[in-house]
Amino acid sequence: TGEEYIAVGDSTAQQVGDLTFKKGEILLVIEKKPDGWWIAKDAKGNEGLVPRTYLEPYS
């Protein structure tokens, strides 16, 4: 379980453990880390770190 967020920009994984996503994708945020990198899952079930500045709450 988690909260749904929509990507407001494209982000390409810079290192192992990062999640690549495109603008408009809905991501499920699993954990919000205080350093600004959140753990999220995409629609295909891929999981990784995403920069919170690229996400907005999805409603």
Rank of each mutant, 00 (worst) to 15 (best):
W37N: 11
A13Q: 09
V8T: 11
E31I: 10
Q15L: 09
G36E: 05
V29L: 04
G36L: 04
V8F: 04
W38E: 01
E56M: 09
G48H: 04
Q15K: 15
E47Y: 13
R52I: 09
E56W: 06
N46F: 07
E3S: 08
Q14Y: 10
T1L: 13
K32E: 04
K33A: 08
L55G: 00
P57L: 08
G24N: 05
L49V: 10
S59W: 12
T1H: 13
S59V: 13
L27S: 00
Y54F: 13
L19Y: 02
T12R: 11
V50A: 06
W38G: 02
K22A: 07
V8W: 05
G36K: 03
I39T: 07
T53I: 13
G17E: 05
Y54A: 14
R52P: 15
G9R: 15
G17Q: 06
Q14M: 12
G45E: 03
K44N: 13
V50L: 04
G17I: 05
D42T: 05
F21Q: 01
V29W: 00
N46K: 07
K23F: 05
Y58S: 07
G36A: 04
L28Y: 11
E3Q: 11
V8S: 06
Q14R: 14
W37P: 05
P57N: 05
T12N: 13
V16Q: 11
R52H: 14
D10V: 04
E31R: 08
G24P: 00
A43Y: 09
A13N: 10
W37M: 14
E31Q: 10
I30A: 02
E4T: 13
V16G: 10
T1S: 13
I26W: 05
Y54P: 03
K33C: 14
G17W: 06
G36C: 04
A40L: 04
E56C: 11
I30T: 07
L19P: 02
G36D: 06
A40W: 02
Y5V: 02
E3H: 09
D35G: 12
K32G: 02
K23E: 06
G9A: 15
G9L: 15
G45V: 00
V50W: 02
I6S: 03
T20E: 11
E31F: 11
S59R: 09
Q14D: 10
A13Y: 08
S59E: 12
E56L: 08
L27R: 00
G2H: 11
K41F: 06
Q15C: 15
A13T: 10
L27Y: 03
A40G: 03
V16L: 12
Y5I: 00
I39W: 12
E47Q: 13
T53L: 10
Q14T: 14
R52F: 12
E56P: 01
V50E: 00
D18I: 14
K22V: 09
L49E: 05
E31D: 10
P34D: 13
V16H: 11
F21S: 01
D10G: 06
E31M: 12
Y58H: 10
Y54C: 15
Y5R: 01
L28R: 09
S11Y: 15
K23C: 10
V50K: 00
D18N: 14
E4S: 11
I30S: 04
E3P: 06
I30F: 07
E25R: 00
T1C: 14
T53Q: 14
S59F: 13
W38M: 03
T20Q: 12
V8Y: 04
K32C: 04
T1K: 13
T12A: 11
V16I: 12
L19N: 01
D10N: 09
W38H: 02
L27K: 00
S11W: 15
A40V: 13
L55A: 00
D35K: 03
T20Y: 08
A7Y: 09
Y5S: 00
K32L: 03
K44P: 02
T20D: 09
T53D: 15
E47M: 14
K41W: 05
K33I: 06
G48N: 01
A40P: 00
I39H: 08
P34K: 10
P51Q: 14
I26P: 03
D18A: 14
E25M: 07
S59P: 13
K23Q: 07
A43S: 14
I30C: 05
A7V: 06
E4W: 15
Q15W: 11
V8D: 02
Y5T: 01
I39G: 02
E4G: 05
S11G: 08
S11T: 07
G9E: 15
E4H: 14
E3C: 14
Y54K: 15
A43H: 09
T53G: 14
L49S: 08
G24F: 04
K33H: 11
Y58T: 08
A7G: 03
E47P: 04
A7M: 05
T20P: 10
I26Q: 03
E31P: 00
G48E: 01
D35Y: 03
G48F: 05
G48T: 02
K41L: 11
D18M: 15
F21N: 00
G48L: 03
S11F: 15
W38Y: 06
Q15M: 11
E56T: 07
K23D: 03
T53S: 14
T12C: 14
K23G: 04
